[in-house]
Amino acid sequence: MSGVLSSVDARTKLVGQNRLELLLFHLGGSQHFAINVFKVQEVMRMPRLTRIPDRHPVVRGVTHLRGQTVPVVDLRHAIQMGPLKLNEEDATIIVTEYNMTVQAFLVGGVDRIVNMNWSEILPPPGGAGRQHYLTAITRIDDRIVEIIDVEKVLAEIAPYNSILSADAYDTELLEKVRGKDILIVDDSHVAIQQMRQVLEPMGLNIIEAHNGLEAYQLLMHWKEEGRDVNSNLVMIITDAEMPEMDGYMLTTEIRRDSELKETFIILHTSLSGNFNKAMVEKVGCNGFLSKFAPEAMAKEVQRLMREKMKMPPRPE
Rank of each mutant, 00 (worst) to 15 (best):
A104V: 06
Y133E: 02
I113Q: 05
P201M: 02
C285F: 02
L84T: 13
Y160G: 10
V107A: 00
D186K: 12
G3F: 12
I35C: 03
L134G: 00
L75D: 00
M235H: 03
S270L: 03
R48E: 15
V283A: 02
S7H: 15
A155C: 10
S272K: 10
R227I: 05
V301I: 13
A78W: 05
R306N: 10
M220H: 08
P125Y: 10
V72P: 00
I254Q: 02
L250C: 03
P312C: 04
E300P: 01
V102R: 11
Q217G: 03
M195A: 06
E316F: 15
P243S: 05
K152W: 10
I121V: 15
D239W: 13
L183M: 07
A10R: 12
E200G: 03
A158W: 08
G129C: 05
V62C: 04
T50Y: 03
P313T: 09
E253M: 11
I182V: 15
Q68D: 11
N211A: 03
Q194N: 14
P125G: 05
Q17E: 09
W222P: 00
T50F: 04
L250A: 01
K299I: 02
E120G: 09
P294K: 14
I52R: 07
V72W: 05
D90N: 11
Q103M: 07
T69W: 09
F292I: 03
Q17C: 08
G82R: 06
K180V: 05
K39N: 11
L5T: 13
Q131Y: 07
D74L: 04
G247H: 06
K282G: 00
Q194M: 13
K152V: 07
L14T: 09
R139V: 15
M309V: 08
G126L: 11
E156Y: 04
I147N: 03
